[in-house]
Computed example of a mutant assay.
Amino acid sequence: MEIINKLNSRLLDKTSKKCLLDIEIYKQRALMYAQMEGAVSVLSDMQADKSYVYKSGTAIELGLSMEKNPAEINSIWEEEIIKKIHPDDRLKKYIHELRFYELMDSLNAESRADYTVLSKIRMKDKNNEYRLVKHRMFYIYSPDNGKLRFALCLYQMTLDQSRQPVSDFMIINAVKGEIIVKDKLDYQNILSGRELEVLKYIGEGYASKEIAEFLSISINTVSRHRQNILEKLKVKNSVQAFKDSFH
């Protein structure tokens, strides 16, 4: 996926000057969040390209494995959790996290702790039904090399479990209580079902020929859908359609 490669290029710390933050301290913090908030807590180490997943009762509700707690993953992507997220929300989550990184990268070090991601996403539960889950994400930067060292993600059941769960993506200034970035464009009400499918594959980096094969349609039909998407969303190219959805 194009968006995953872009995120990896931004997030993973490959600099020669290593961060000296003690990971054990941050593991304890991740454990505390899981225990005190009943959350699934994921600590990702950008320097080591590893994640540590701490699970509570929420993990059982989501049908996640409890065999290893914490679970250690050789990647910054917690695949068992990510695969439970609704495909549309998964792509939005990736794009939203890229925007969060770019925002944080533009701020001075003293201001970064004020900002966080706050989202509601649809995830499959133990019964294979979609439930609304609150997702929060925090970044911790290294005082040694100035690079992003840790990301802490929290997953909790929301209080709003309506019959038609609606996802929501925000970047907030927690100190001021302000929304900095919020979904602007609800393209699900603008595009047809097939156009949404095409847009999803475009966002994942697939070429028109591949999209045509996935959807069992002609390349000409894919091209027509691409053009319709651009006209309906009033953007210059298909990738920009995703970016504009999060301004």
Rank of each mutant, 00 (worst) to 15 (best):
A109Y: 10
V133Q: 12
H135T: 10
F169P: 02
F138L: 13
L185V: 09
N173V: 04
P165L: 11
N128A: 06
V181Q: 13
F138W: 11
A174M: 11
K176P: 00
E102S: 14
R122F: 00
E102A: 11
F100W: 07
E97R: 10
Q164I: 13
K184F: 12
E129N: 15
L148F: 12
R131L: 03
V133R: 12
M170N: 13
L132I: 01
L107E: 02
E110K: 13
T158H: 08
S162M: 04
A109D: 15
Y139T: 04
R163Y: 08
L107R: 05
A174H: 03
R131T: 03
D144E: 07
M157K: 15
M157I: 02
N128C: 02
F150Y: 15
V175G: 07
M157T: 08
E97W: 04
R136W: 06
K126C: 09
I172G: 02
Y155Q: 06
D125M: 03
F150W: 07
Y139H: 15
A151L: 13
S167W: 03
F150P: 01
R99L: 14
L98P: 00
F138N: 07
E102N: 15
S167G: 13
D144H: 14
S142F: 01
D183A: 10
L107Q: 03
L154P: 00
V181D: 06
L159A: 11
L107H: 05
Q161I: 07
I140K: 09
R131Y: 01
K182P: 01
D105E: 14
F138G: 03
I180W: 06
L154D: 01
L132E: 09
Y139Q: 06
S119H: 09
P143Q: 09
L154A: 05
L159K: 14
I179S: 09
I171D: 02
G177R: 08
R149C: 09
L107S: 05
R136H: 10
M137C: 12
F169N: 10
R112G: 03
F138C: 02
V133Y: 05
S119C: 15
S162A: 15
F138T: 10
K134A: 13
L132A: 10
R122L: 05
V166N: 08
D125L: 06
L154C: 01
K184E: 14
R112M: 06
I171M: 08
F169G: 04
I172Q: 04
D160E: 15
P143G: 08
R122G: 13
H135W: 06
G177L: 05
A113R: 07
R122C: 07
S106D: 12
V166Q: 13
A109F: 13
G146P: 04
M123R: 14
G146K: 06
A174Y: 01
N173T: 04
D160Y: 03
D105A: 14
Q164R: 12
D105H: 14
I172H: 04
N127A: 05
T116P: 00
R112A: 06
Q164C: 06
E110V: 12
R149P: 00
G177F: 08
M137K: 12
K182Y: 11
T116G: 08
G177T: 09
Y115H: 01
F138M: 07
A174D: 11
Y141F: 15
R122V: 00
